[in-house]
Design a protein around this nucleic acid. Structure first.
Lengths: 338, 338
DNA sequence: CTGTTAGCGCTTTCAA
DNA sequence: TTGAAAGCGCTAACAG
């Protein structure tokens, strides 16, 4: 194997800058770090800054990390890069991280797989993945601080979620308010707590209106199109047949609407659909999907604030983002037939 | 400001392992790197490995990066984390990177913004962003190797793309084959070369069938729902009114179909629609969207192969992923009315 | 078969 | 107001 490694120019180091400016490297370091308690002659500072400019110098993060034991990076692990919900969260997190001078490293896949890869490259980890069976080990000794995002975990840990229960309850109440009585729920996978909290929102809203939830009216499904389609297909066979569906997830709702159509029924004339999460395409679907918008970007930015607090030794615990859900009425729900 | 930094346990170092195993650190290092040219007494190796296990030791990437001048990380910059097309690419890239022992750091946003942040943390950069006006500076001295992905750049650089031209041509030919003559094109933003190549595919397919492209039949649009809706709305006002639309992007097509409906027309009875990129929801739309599937994951994995070659001093140039596009016939296209 | 040594590029006391 | 020196955790060349 011929190693044809090209001769890349050696990176300019702090020493080079120091030499060019006729000062010691330590001075360059302190200048670049904006050390307040430092008094430098303006002209010296000028010379150093000029040299930095001229040589195009950038500090080496690896060397800094080694010395300071801080990488200035944060890790975000999400179950699936293709999931719009998570990328929405990621966008919020990324902005906040950047504002704090941190890089956000986003990876998809299982916690197991990513944990070890990320663990030693970041100062803190945000886990967007966790099921009842596989909660990542938070805060193992020797590992950076970690917390759950959009998932609630064991009491000792920390987490941040949106008010899923309120969101689904809001959607359910809306259907009730326009006259529906037989409302079924397309629930998410019940081994993730987010889905369980949404289910509770549905159950509560139904109970508070004194409405019955017949057997089978809660159909578990994965958070994607196929899952929603399968769940809806089953629900439509039930007696009494539901006149409305609250979906725990908008992507699943897209599948559900397709299933309704394939049974020769139509949305919203025969079956009304309301879904959690206001995804970008909701307004362009046929019919446009009525949704409950959740503060996802805020969930992301909040999680960064929290992990930063943890990194600095603070306590954060379990938080629910306070911003209330918002109902976005479009065309997929109407009063029930007859 | 009270610094309440908690006392996190000091990380286990290689020295600790060496001490625990009664050997020198350098031996631990060579063992952990799987140095072939090393002969160690099996029992010594065993002792070291046991110590590693017992202490839960992991090597410090910052220290390794400083020493070896390799971070074992790759950067991927994509325009928008929410764009399904790009996350599909990212998934392919991530898998290949992991297989090669590299971490893929994904960030969204502008090249300008991300470049400097990533530059010194990775061994190579994959740019998924570039317009005619803002080509990132590839391979600046002192920066890691970089190339474009899903974008073609200046001759001196390197890039990998899929065969966009063939893809759109395939969709256009399909519409022609079922009888359409008046086919309009929802083109992407013409300052990105991907969009220009797709436009060329449309033009060529029309020309090769001897079909006329009336003025205004090519509408530029951004690669999202609003863009598609706006473009389609304009196209439908033209005389002769097109009977079919080829969209350079499936997300834009979702918007286009909505625009068709809002003019009181229907898909595919009045207007047929075919789009590039087989997005997950295509099959669940109303009507299900006929698309041309492009090898996006392969585009991602291929880009990783290429940047790895560059990192090792090799040349790669400009490549087009060979896997041909595939037509996925669903319900959004039918023979023209009358 | 295993140990010694030097040093990657930076930050941080401490001294001048 | 600035410089000197030590060392973060690791790897690689060289000795033994």
């Amino acid at each position: 194997m011929t190693d044809s490694r090209a001769a890349r120019p050696r990176r300019v180091t702090m020493k080079d800058v120091a030499a060019a400016a006729g000062v010691d490297a330590s001075l360059v370091s302190r200048l670049l770090s904006g050390d307040e308690s430092l008094s430098v002659r303006p002209e010296t500072e000028q010379r150093v800054m000029d040299a930095v400019q001229r040589l195009g110098y950038r500090r080496n993060p690896a060397a800094r990390a080694l010395k300071t034991a801080r990488t200035m990076a944060l890790g975000l692990i999400i179950p699936d890069l293709r999931n719009v919900i998570y990328t929405e969260i990621a966008v919020g997190a990324e902005q906040r991280a950047a504002a704090a001078g941190y890089v956000l490293l986003i990876t998809g896949g299982s916690a197991q797989l990513r944990q070890e890869i990320l663990e030693d490259r970041v100062d803190g980890i945000l886990y967007g993945v966790a099921t009842a069976d596989t909660v990542p080990t938070l805060n193992a000794p020797g590992s950076p601080p970690a917390m759950l995002i959009n998932r609630r975990g064991p009491a000792e840990g920390s987490s941040v979620v949106v008010d899923d229960q309120a969101g689904v309850a809001m959607g359910t109440r809306y259907l009730i308010s326009i006259g529906h009585r037989w409302i079924a729920h397309i629930a998410g996978p019940q081994n993730v707590d987010t889905a369980r909290r949404r289910r509770r929102g549905y159950i509560n809203a139904m109970a508070e209106a004194g409405l019955e939830i017949p057997d089978g009216y809660i159909a578990e499904s994965s958070f994607n199109e196929v899952g929603g389609a399968t769940a809806a297909a089953g629900l439509l066979q039930l007696t009494p047949r539901p006149t409305a569906l609250v979906a725990a997830n908008a992507v699943a709702a897209v599948g559900a609407m397709a299933a309704v159509r394939s049974q020769g029924l139509s949305v919203p004339e025969d079956i009304s659909v309301v879904a959690l999460h206001d995804i970008p395409q909701a307004a362009y679907l046929n019919p446009p999907l009525t949704t409950v918008r959740m503060p996802l970007a805020e969930l992301g930015s909040r999680s960064v604030d929290m992990i930063l607090t943890m990194i600095n030794g603070g306590q954060v615990g379990h938080v629910v983002v306070a911003t209330p859900p918002e109902l976005i009425v479009r065309g997929s729900a109407a009063p029930p037939p007859r």
